[in-house]
Amino acid sequence: MVGAYIIAQFQFGPDQASSLAGQVDALFLTLLAITGTILALVAVTILYCLARYRRNAQVDRTPIPDSSLPLETAWTVIPMFIFLGMFGWGATLYFKKNQSPSNATEIYVIGKQWMWKVQHLQGKREINELHVPVGRTIRLIMTSQDVIHDFFLPAFRVKQDVLPGTYTTQWFAGTKTGSFPIFCAQYCGTYHANMIGQVIVQTPQDYEEWLSSGTTEPAMALSGANLFRSLGCSGCHAVNASVRAPLLNNLYGSPVPLQNGQVVTADERYIRDSILQPELQIAAGYDPIMPSFKDRVSEEELTQLISYIKSLSKSTDR
């Protein structure tokens, strides 16, 4: 009884709750097997020598050469190839982790000392909780209001620093329902250890039900459209506006030629920067007359504006 209780306290691996988890664990276990074998071989050799060649032992000590090029080459080149394999496998997973699949469900996350604020496109907000439907690919668009945080989902084997002043993204797909921890993994001040939350993976029906339950806000794009009007953006960015400013239809995801000759892709970061620091990247063919909205919009409003501008793009059905 007591023994079983004690054993139950030991947990050897975290939950596997995402499509990536099994793949990361497979690489981990493979490395464990390889390095464990090498470590065991080295240890056994050392212990064998220590025992056999102790000072008083009468054993064959005919000197061997002090160096051997073939041996040195072997234990330089063989590890190198093994390492190359580890690199390749690890990098493959990383590329996968950093490439959001298309048609993901987007959710905005804002970190601040010491909580996570989440808003779903449909308008629903939550704090320190993240409801997602099982099986769907979720793309998180994250930023911080103050210091650097890190959105860490151990059961999904992903984490990503959440930086102030820009967006970082990460994606995952839950493979089973249940609730799984969110930790802040980047030290962010006094209550860093309390910046903990739950990902709640639900069946699609439960998720829909949850979305429409309780107090609901307008969809993010709708709030964004209202802001777009009230902040005066539409005064310039409209077909019949009196000044010449680019129309924002189909902006998201498309290449934008800049005045300095560069071409950048209009992603969330670009739209964000265009609103906060318009002077940095001027769209080619336009006068730099757009004012900065740096101190006039909050991080939440910014995400709403962005999701509105994104909703103007047909290429993506977000």
Binding site: F87, L93, P154
Partner: peptide, 10 residues
Amino acid sequence: ALGIDVHVHD
């Protein structure tokens, strides 16, 4: 190994 570091970093 990049894929593992993502999980165990920090």
